[in-house]
């Protein structure tokens, strides 16, 4: 079985982002970039499935500007086998990304697609579900546990009310929650090895896909800042303030 894992290059989750003064977006120049965190969980899960003898090959796909290849390289250093890079604007919307992934799937015929449940830059939480709908496959979103048993897969999903478990035949698209596993660090020998692993380069135009944005971003602003409040001396003062000043208890 082949597993396709998608990875996105995003601003590192530890970076405090800055909104551009012309309101055109968020500053990305000279900002630390990393693999989208739940995509790391997707890579890790694929590696564990392969290590358990249930997959033969792990292909990493990234879509974006040139440097997305570095993110593919990171996944290869974790242990994946080869990469596919599709050149497109970093602002390609989930629908466009889903159409690109659909094309790659037609070519590579994976049985399982693992993706992060959400990218931490645009927070859309759409692409996995869209890929699944485009391919007319089943989906298992927000996965916190994945068990493969022959041609079937059982997934535990994180939902607002608690946990839900579903079972279905492969192929499927699963989107990974941060609780799925603890991603490994790449060892130095594996980083060296990864440099020799192949990455195929394509572009959205070559694939013949129209990825024109459907949404026009009018502006990006900072949310209203919350002003710092006061420090109280003790619990008695706190309760008095909540009762008489804020009037919330």
């Amino acid at each position: 079985m082949k597993i396709l894992v998608t990875v996105k290059r995003v601003i590192d989750y530890n970076v405090q982002i800055r909104v551009k003064s012309d309101q055109s977006g968020v500053e990305t120049d000279n900002v630390k970039m990393s693999m989208n965190p739940p995509d790391e969980n997707a890579v890790e899960e694929a590696l564990r499935i392969k290590e358990a003898g249930k997959a033969d090959e792990i292909i990493i796909l990234s879509i974006g500007e040139e440097k997305s290849q570095e993110t593919i390289r990171t996944a290869l250093a974790m242990g994946a086998d080869r990469g596919i890079y599709v050149k497109a604007s970093n602002d390609t919307e989930p629908l466009g990304v889903a159409k690109i992934i659909e094309k790659i799937v037609d070519k590579e015929k994976p049985q399982l697609i693992l993706m992060g449940k959400q990218a931490i830059d645009d927070d859309s939480n759409q692409t996995g579900q869209m890929v699944s709908a485009k391919l007319n496959w089943t989906q298992a979103t927000f996965a916190s546990k994945i068990e493969i048993d022959g041609d079937n897969i059982k997934v535990t999903r994180e939902i607002d009310e608690g946990l839900e478990t579903i079972k279905m035949p492969l192929p499927i698209v699963a989107t990974c929650d941060l609780r799925l596993n603890e991603p490994r660090y790449a060892s130095l020998p594996n980083i060296m090895k990864a440099k020799k692993k192949p990455i195929e380069s394509l572009s959205a135009e070559e694939l013949g896909i129209d990825i024109t944005p459907r949404l026009k971003q009018l502006k990006v602003i900072e949310p209203p800042k919350r002003s710092k409040g006061i420090m109280v001396a003790d619990v008695a003062e706190l309760v008095q303030k909540l009762k008489n000043e804020a009037k919330v208890i």
């Binding site: 919307e93 989930p94 629908l95 927070d123 759409q126 869209m130 709908a133 979103t141 994180e158 939902i159």
Partner: peptide, 23 residues
């Protein structure tokens, strides 16, 4: 935009070939 809606609506958008506006 609960786990119920997030699970379903992107499929709806993809089938209709439109963007989804999240959250």
């Amino acid at each position: 935009a609960s786990t119920f809606g997030k699970n379903i609506m992107p499929r709806v958008a993809a089938i209709l070939d439109v963007a989804q506006i999240s959250d």
